[in-house]
Simulated assay, not measured.
Amino acid sequence: MIDKGIKYLGYLTAFILGLLVLLVVYDATVRYLFSGGSIALQELEWHFFDLVILFGIAYTLREDAHVRVDIFYASFSDKTKALINTISSLFFILPFSILIIYIGLDFVSQSFIQDECSSNPGGLDYRFLVKSLMPLSFIFLALQAMVDAKTNFYMWKSL
């Protein structure tokens, strides 16, 4: 169920990326051809970019498309790769995710209490909504790390 949820999160991220591209094209066209523009649209671009990056993390781990030192990893046996993936999920990704969630909850609650909004005139309100994506995205990453650890552990045991 987690794996399927992260898959659909990846699809949502791809859709948001498409919207981001359209928004940037629109914003650049209005700015350079018509000497117009909007602070709110520029901030919306950043918010969409935040969504793409933060929600793309778990999907990238699911697809095994994250960055690693392939110079060594590529030459390892499947059993060694499964062991490395299990250890990295349990002892690196999971603790880091828990730390970011823990720190991020205070970060978001402070923003919510202050009813934080853009400091730019014409900017977007409710900045705490965007900030809440940080702990949420690391919850998704932690869940995916647990799925990967389980999958790789069973793979390691069977090889």
Rank of each mutant, 00 (worst) to 15 (best):
M134I: 14
L9I: 12
M134R: 10
F112T: 13
L54R: 01
I139R: 01
F55L: 07
L22K: 08
M146C: 15
M134C: 10
G56C: 04
L83E: 02
N120M: 06
I113A: 14
A74E: 10
L136Y: 04
S38Q: 13
S77C: 14
I16H: 08
L17S: 12
S88Y: 00
L44S: 07
F76C: 02
A28R: 10
T60K: 00
L136F: 11
A74Y: 08
F48M: 14
T60E: 04
Q42C: 04
Y11K: 07
F34E: 15
G123L: 00
V67L: 03
M134T: 11
V30M: 13
M1A: 05
F112W: 15
A145I: 10
V130Q: 04
S88A: 04
I71W: 05
G5I: 06
F112C: 10
L23A: 13
R31V: 10
I57V: 09
E45M: 06
I2W: 02
V69I: 09
I71N: 04
L9T: 08
A40N: 09
A14H: 09
I100T: 11
D64F: 07
G5M: 08
A40G: 08
V147C: 03
F72D: 05
F140S: 01
L105I: 07
L23P: 02
T29E: 10
S97I: 02
I39Q: 07
M1Q: 06
F112R: 14
L141E: 00
L136K: 09
L51Y: 11
T29I: 14
P95D: 12
K81E: 12
D64L: 10
T80P: 01
F112V: 13
M146R: 03
L94T: 13
L99P: 07
T86D: 06
D106G: 15
D50S: 14
L20T: 06
R62F: 02
F55K: 02
Q144E: 12
D50E: 12
E116I: 12
F55M: 06
R31G: 11
G10H: 00
S77E: 10
R62Y: 05
P121W: 12
L61K: 00
I113P: 12
E63C: 00
I53T: 15
